[in-house]
Amino acid sequence: MELFWKHKAFSELTTEELYRILQLRVNIFVNEQQCFYPELDDKDFHCSHLWAEIGHEIIVYARLVPPSFSYPEPSIGRIVTNPSFRGNHYGKSLVEKAITLTYEKHGQTAIQIGAQTYLKKFYGCFGFEQVSEEYLDFGIPHIDMIKP
């Protein structure tokens, strides 16, 4: 199946797109992972939003965060794959596109992420390197990683 990619600033999102994005994020990060944290953190207003759809369903999503909102460097966050489509390497395509878009907007700069520890090898495939000790973020083990 072919993915239809969308990339928009917050102000460009339709109410339906925003609803579907937040629904996927809450379903995964809050419900599936049992992580009760402030999903609505005021960063979305300043970010661009990248996702892919098949039909009318969001398959993968990432939030592209400008420098100084999460880290000194630009960041990619809220990376998520719809559970119905896991195992199809759509997440890999998402991260590749997110890196490319970050470079287009901010130049060939370092990118920092806060990754769930179990995904260290996955992000390592894109050149991200661990730069922190493991820490708990609302009960889930994380590490900070930078793509130099």
Rank of each mutant, 00 (worst) to 15 (best):
L3K: 13
K6W: 04
H7V: 07
H7K: 07
K8S: 02
S11I: 10
E12F: 02
L13F: 10
L13D: 03
L13S: 07
L13G: 13
T15S: 14
E16S: 14
E17T: 02
L18K: 00
Y19Q: 05
I21H: 00
L24F: 01
R25K: 12
V30A: 06
N31W: 10
Q33M: 15
Q34L: 12
C35Q: 13
P38W: 01
L40H: 05
D41G: 10
D41P: 04
K43H: 10
K43A: 06
F45V: 13
F45W: 06
C47P: 01
S48D: 11
S48K: 09
L50G: 03
E53S: 08
E53W: 01
H56W: 00
I59W: 06
V60P: 00
Y61W: 05
A62C: 06
R63Y: 09
L64P: 07
P66Q: 05
P66F: 07
P66A: 07
P67F: 06
F69K: 08
S70E: 09
S70F: 02
Y71V: 02
R78I: 10
I79L: 07
I79Q: 06
P83F: 08
F85I: 03
H89A: 11
H89E: 11
H89R: 13
H89M: 09
Y90S: 00
G91A: 11
G91R: 04
L94Q: 07
E96I: 06
E96F: 05
A98N: 08
I99S: 01
T100D: 10
T100Y: 09
L101K: 08
Y103F: 13
E104G: 04
G107V: 09
G107A: 07
Q108R: 13
A110K: 14
I111S: 07
Q112R: 15
Q112H: 11
I113P: 09
G114R: 14
A115Y: 08
Q116M: 10
K120G: 03
G124F: 11
G124K: 08
G124C: 14
C125Q: 15
C125D: 14
F126M: 12
F126T: 14
F128C: 02
E129Q: 15
E129V: 11
V131S: 01
V131G: 00
V131D: 01
S132P: 05
L136F: 14
L136C: 05
I140Q: 00
I140L: 00
I140K: 00
P141D: 12
H142N: 03
H142R: 11
I143T: 13
D144W: 00
D144I: 00
D144R: 01
M145D: 09
M145G: 09
